[in-house]
């Protein structure tokens, strides 16, 4: 088993102006996705990220406040899942609920160093 990070990239919900009812509907889709993974025995964990960004860069360690990317490219959160292959994760990501909002999923394998 390998571990993969699914990174959720897209417009922040704050900018979409969804109504309470629409937000609830979207929530339901996320719950369904999470439940589906659970029922298939796919271990997953993750965190959600706030929109605000601080960036430190350059030899002078210049501190700046975001946003630094277009709002539709904001990283909103991630899941870490266990799977055999990246194709399996691509399969899991089929049910990501926010494609219709223009959001996307990036999958990266988590590196393990053999000693």
């Amino acid at each position: 088993m390998k571990e993969f990070m699914m990174i959720f990239v897209g417009t922040s919900y704050e900018e979409l102006g969804l109504s309470p009812e629409q937000m609830q509907a979207r929530m339901g889709k996320w719950f369904a996705w999470s439940n589906k993974m659970e029922s298939q025995g796919i271990a997953h964990r993750g965190e959600a990220l706030h929109d605000a960004v601080k960036r430190i860069s350059g030899p002078d360690r210049v501190v700046g406040d975001g946003p630094f990317v277009e709002s539709k490219e904001l990283v909103g959160g991630y899941y870490i899942v266990k799977a055999e292959t990246v194709e399996d994760v691509v399969e899991i990501a089929q049910d990501f609920p926010d494609y219709d909002l223009g959001s996307s999923v990036e999958i990266r394998e988590i590196m393990v160093f053999d000693q």
Partner: peptide, 8 residues
């Protein structure tokens, strides 16, 4: 919504 989608 942001929080719950990852952890209900």
């Amino acid at each position: 919504l942001t929080k719950w989608r990852i952890q209900a």
